[in-house]
Write a protein that binds this DNA or RNA. Structure first.
Lengths: 241, 241
DNA sequence: AATCTTTCAATTGTCAGACATTTAAAAACA
DNA sequence: TGTTTTTAAATGTCTGACAATTGAAAGATT
């Protein structure tokens, strides 16, 4: 008789029902959901069960809640900004929990980034260029910790990708770039390494400024190769130890 | 006096604490968390509050729960498969809620996909080729609904991307490809349109089979342009109506 | 001794009712 | 009219209880 598995927990069922209403557009942005008490009565469950369902949706940024007289749960306008943090967390965990090796992660990142470079060369604004130059300057500062160097590296590449002027690309690439930061942080950067990277960054920035997509692509390819070689060396040092 | 905003709800605080323990590696995959009662006592809150925190984490696939004597909450190994569904949902909502126009979404998708094509040309297995050919055949079947045509289109492109043999790329691209399916579904495909798309798909498959990265890239660029033109036409028809 | 059955204990899932806190609007007041 | 107080509605939290599930231990049977 049965076909559907109706053994799911109630809070899961309720969360799913509301989520589908949001995704399908039955519930629109900023619309207020019924109060917890009303939902409980509608679904024939208790208030704590409804609350667990709402917390599930809140964890996915699908709703936001407000207390007080005019409060309640509202359909949340999912912003790229909000979604970025979750995507980075997810990417980071995917890499670490599935033993994705550095080469694979690095290849994915640079493959995607290189795809953005020609667009960025076309469309970058002075703002993007200024950010890239500023980060290159910072990367040359003496006494910069490896962690700060990596953070600046991320900022540089984010500016590069943002230059493409496509929020969807920026969103996806931010994750790709930032998710491997923990892996990059495991590398120790000698002064020579840093100088090399800064030179490559300068080549990239020059190409982007000169709206030369081919050059920026080649410079990124070189940076990808150099990064891989650094990681390989770090791995071997670790193994030899 | 205060510097940190400690006004966050308790269930949020607890969820954040546990999430950070997972991300930082303090809690490892498949490790069992303390029981709800123990967590409640540890954090000095009631069981319902702990449960709301756990539901938040469960909604992000960070933990799974099991009932019974040996039950409890366990750190979940986040799989690409699991994460894909959430990413697609998020992408779809981002596009619809932020009024991302078709051109922008389409550009992002094809930019990323074209980046994968050369890798796929190098590494694709006979399996990937077989899937691509099979989907092309299906796309030519008479009486196929627009929806099924789109679904097959998605399957074709997923096989193409999977051919690159990089799970990280597959994961990110699956989202990019599938998230715009709802937008593609709004287009009506005439027989002539379908023939054109099938011809382009065949060109792509041929290039991938012949391990010709440049050809596959060009064919994808042509497909991108054709898709955009179809969407533009559909938009104008809608406006004229 | 081996195997099947029953019981048990631990844990999550659900419920009911209560109180605390927050918030904006309504009412009272100056 | 402007300010303060009250009030009502909503979420946030707590307590205590019971139901459902599940693996393991204890017991019964062959």
């Amino acid at each position: 008789m049965a076909g559907t598995k109706n053994t799911a927990d109630l809070s899961v069922e309720i969360a799913t029902a509301i989520r589908e209403a949001i995704v399908s557009g039955k519930l629109i942005v900023d619309e207020r959901l019924p109060s917890e008490a009303e939902l409980a009565s509608e679904f024939g469950v208790s208030r704590p069960t409804v609350r667990e369902a709402l917390k599930r949706l809140a964890a996915q940024n699908l709703i936001r809640t407000k207390r007080g007289a005019t409060g309640g749960a509202f359909v949340n306008r999912l912003s790229f900004e909000e979604a970025r943090g979750d995507l980075i967390t997810t990417s980071t965990l995917l890499l670490s929990m599935n033993d994705v090796d550095f080469d694979t992660a690095c290849e994915a990142r640079f493959t995607l980034e290189r795809a953005c470079a020609p667009l960025s060369a076309q469309r970058r604004t002075p703002d993007h260029l200024a950010t890239m130059r500023a980060e290159i300057t910072r990367q040359g500062q003496a006494g910069l910790s490896d962690e700060s160097f990596c953070a600046s590296d991320v900022a540089f590449h984010r500016a590069l990708v943002d230059g493409a002027g496509n929020p969807v690309l920026s969103w996806q690439l931010a994750a790709a770039v930032e998710a491997i930061e923990p892996l990059m942080n495991m590398i120790t950067y000698s002064q020579r390494d840093r100088d090399q990277i800064i030179a490559l960054h300068t080549r990239i920035a020059d190409a982007i400024e000169g709206q030369n997509g081919a050059d920026s692509d080649q410079a990124l390819a070189d940076l990808a190769e150099y990064t891989r070689s650094l990681a390989r060396a770090a791995m071997e040092r670790r193994k030899a130890r």
